[in-house]
Each structure stands twice: as C-alpha cells, then as structure tokens.
Amino acid sequence: MQRAIGVQLQASPEVDPRQELERRRDFLCDAMHESRQTTLVLGISGGVDSTVAGRLAQLAVEKRREQGEQAAFVAMRLPYGVQQDADDADRALAFIQPDEVLDVNIQGASDALLEALESGGLTFTDAHQRDFVLGNIKARQRMVAQYAVAGTRSGLVIGTDQAAEALMGFFTKYGDGACDVAPLTGLSKRQVRLLGQQLGAPAALVDKAPTADLESLAPQKLDEVALGVTYEEIDAFLEAREVSASAFDTIVTTYRRTEHKRRLPITPD
C-alpha cells in the first residue's frame, strides 16, 4: 500500500536537485508555450514551497524571454490583515526577484463574506468551527485574487502543492489546491528543501517550520501539530522508507479520508 500510494502521488525515493530544477523550470516554459499564456502568477507566503516555486517561475519566464517570447512573473503578497511572518515573505521576494509584486490584503473580502453568510442564516457550533470556516475562506479568497490577476494578464496560476501535502490532503479544496500548473508535484518536503538549497534560497526559509497560518484563534499553528505526524515521517512514507506503526496508521487514515480532495468532481455514471 505504501508503495502504491507513492506511485500514485508521483513520489521518488531520491531526486537529483539540479536535474529536477531544470525539468520543472522547463515544465513551466512548456505550459506557457502550449497554453499561449504570457504570465505566471503565484502567491508568496514566506515558506519554502512558495519560495522554490516562485524562483522556478522567475527562471522560467527569463528563459522564455531569452527565446524571444513575451513572458512575465507576477508574485503576490496576500496577507490577512498583518502577516506575522511578513519578514519571511520579504526575504522570499528578495531572493526570487519577481518581475512584479502585487500586495493585496484579503481581510476585508474574507470578513465580508463570513458576515454575509451569518446574515443569511448560517450558524456555527462554536468559535473554533467559525474560525476553521474563515480559514478556508481566506485560502479561497487568495486564489480568487490570483485568478483575477491571471485573467487580466493572460496568465497561469501556479500551485505549491507537493507530495507531502497531497498525501495528507493538507490544502483547501478550491483554495490553495486550485491552480493551473503545479511544478512541485511528486516532491517530498525534504526534496523541496533540497531544491531550495540548490537554488541558493536563504537557509531561514529552506529550514522554516511550515505553517498554513489560516486559523485566527491559533496563529502560526505548525503543520505538524495540525497533522498529528511529522514531515520526517511523511517523507519517509513517500520515499518508501520504514515508518512507525502509529505514523503509518495516521498517514493512511488521513490519505483515505481526504481522497475527495485529490479527485475531480463526482459525476453520474
């Protein structure tokens, strides 16, 4: 079962960072060529995934321009109010060196939607459920903003989903899970970090403890706390290495429970 899941998620026990960077940069170039789009769009959070994907995007558009094609990368800052780790997002942008940066605060739109839902009659069991729903609204508002830019600039929206998040279903359906191109597909968290190191990204970003930071009542909540298993154990599972029985059970149970997130909408037979 472990091997079968790894194959389904396109995971590999080992990767050559230099080769993977070239392959994934060229994947973005090919996607632009085949779709006849001229812009790549990505939200930059300050984590390793968006840092690596952002730098790949910038390298891809630079290669397209060297080939005589029109191409640009638009990086987006998408905070909800004041971002607690805003300095990390600034470091990521300084490293990526995108062609353009747009700063869009999603708090007003997110809060307004939640208030409209409550005015329309939606009720919550408690404050934590309300906060969880708001967290998913934030993720989806960020994607609304990115697609607005892509629609204006003839662009493709980049997703940062990698194999570790795909395995655990650790993304918002039609939020950060929605995109046109996903250049990090198949990589474990460890392998994303290796690509970041190969690119020369700041160590503080490469080694940063991941957080989705969607819950207002639990700001900067670590992914590993939410998941109930460490990224080291998730990576070991993906890379066909031995994991503890408890980690195996948690991972497989979560994988099965979140299967709907990895599928297209259900349709009649």
Rank of each mutant, 00 (worst) to 15 (best):
Q2M: 08
V7N: 02
Q8W: 00
S12M: 04
P13W: 03
D16T: 09
Q19I: 05
L21C: 14
R23H: 10
R23V: 03
R24S: 12
D26M: 03
F27W: 11
F27S: 03
L28C: 07
C29P: 08
C29N: 01
D30A: 08
D30C: 10
A31C: 12
H33K: 07
E34L: 10
E34P: 02
S35F: 02
T38W: 01
L42K: 10
G43H: 05
G46S: 04
G47P: 03
G47E: 12
V48L: 09
D49F: 10
G54N: 14
R55T: 14
L59S: 09
E62T: 15
R64Q: 08
R65W: 13
Q67L: 13
G68I: 02
Q70L: 11
Q70T: 14
A71R: 11
A71Q: 05
A71F: 06
R77E: 09
A86N: 05
D90C: 01
D90E: 03
R91E: 02
Q97N: 00
P98M: 08
D99G: 04
V101N: 06
D103V: 12
Q107I: 02
G108E: 11
A112L: 10
L113D: 08
L114G: 08
L114K: 06
L114N: 03
E115I: 13
E118A: 12
G120E: 13
F124S: 07
T125R: 04
Q129Y: 01
F132L: 10
V133L: 13
Q141V: 14
R142T: 09
A145M: 15
A145T: 13
Q146H: 15
V149M: 04
A150Y: 15
G151W: 06
R153L: 12
G155K: 07
G155Y: 10
I158L: 11
I158Y: 08
D161H: 07
Q162Y: 14
Q162T: 04
A164S: 15
L167G: 10
M168V: 07
G169T: 01
G169M: 08
F171Q: 04
F171P: 03
T172D: 07
D176V: 13
C179N: 15
C179W: 11
V181Y: 05
L184F: 06
T185D: 11
L187W: 00
L187P: 04
K189G: 05
R190P: 06
G196V: 05
Q197P: 00
A201W: 01
A204F: 09
A204K: 14
V206Q: 01
V206R: 00
E215T: 02
S216Y: 00
L217T: 13
A218Q: 01
P219K: 01
L222Q: 13
D223Q: 09
D223C: 08
V225N: 06
G228V: 03
V229D: 06
V229R: 11
D235T: 10
D235H: 06
A236V: 09
F237K: 03
L238H: 11
E239F: 06
A240D: 14
E242Y: 02
S244Q: 02
I251F: 04
V252H: 11
V252S: 13
T253A: 13
Y255A: 04
T258K: 15
T258C: 12
E259R: 15
R263I: 05
L264R: 04
D269P: 05
